[in-house]
Design a protein around this nucleic acid. Structure first.
Lengths: 118, 118
DNA sequence: CAGGCTGTGGACTATGTAGTAAACAGGACA
DNA sequence: TGTCCTGTTTACTACATAGTCCACAGCCTG
């Protein structure tokens, strides 16, 4: 596979189209502000994924998590980038430490942050 | 200011040049594998920062933390990107939760991960 | 059978990225 | 005074990103 982004989008959109015909390539394209031919090519992997902005809009329209869709496009939300960019050493170390930890451990850290009295 | 990257690099390089004349624009440029004219432009902010690869090399040569130099260039190390990309929901939530926490709190989390029995 | 929808194909474009190549001007020094 | 190193200027290039625009063929419906 060469990106998985397009196929995933197509699958979600087609699913929605079963109950609502307005989820056609053309109409969804218009809703996110691109040409239908472009969305068509993106869904078939003939064009690389669109910009972050369009991906976020698309996520809203097809009901997917924006971070997940961005990840499938090989991108990362610019607000996360900015957060890391502001304290690079701190966040770089944190992320590298958690890199190989299982999901549950990372989730535990998230919960700790949530509960803790800092 | 328009990027701070160039100025920072120049400052570090000039500092090193005081005790070792081999830290000239030309020679450092050769060491990291770019044309001297390019490094010159980068240091003066006349060209945008170079690629991640060159920035990491440059960091080694001038003795700066690669993550810090990448941050000054508005970039993030690709290994961090990849880690987030693999588990987008998990890491997105973690980073957003820590976004506004003080350095010490984030450092505490890092230590927790370090010590903890997962 | 015309008009409207559907998806798609091909050509093109503008901007950004990541530099190279060649030449020029000034200081040091032998 | 010639040559060597210094930083810098200008022009140019190759490739990626992020799309647009127009055209076409197929289906359905009044």
């Amino acid at each position: 596979m060469q990106s998985a982004f397009g196929g995933h989008v197509r699958q979600l959109r087609e699913g929605l189209r079963n109950s609502d015909p307005s989820f056609s390539v053309r109409q969804v394209a218009v809703r996110i502000g691109v040409e239908p031919s472009f969305l068509s090519k993106v869904e078939r992997g003939q064009s690389p994924p669109p910009s972050e902005e369009k991906i976020v809009l698309l996520a809203k329209v097809i009901g997917e998590d924006p971070d997940v869709l961005l990840a499938l496009a090989g991108k990362i939300s610019s607000d996360l980038k900015e957060t890391i960019r502001r304290r690079p050493k701190l966040f770089a170390e944190l992320i590298r430490r958690l890199k190989d930890e299982p999901d549950e451990s990372v989730a535990q850290v998230v919960r700790t942050v949530c509960d803790g009295d800092w």
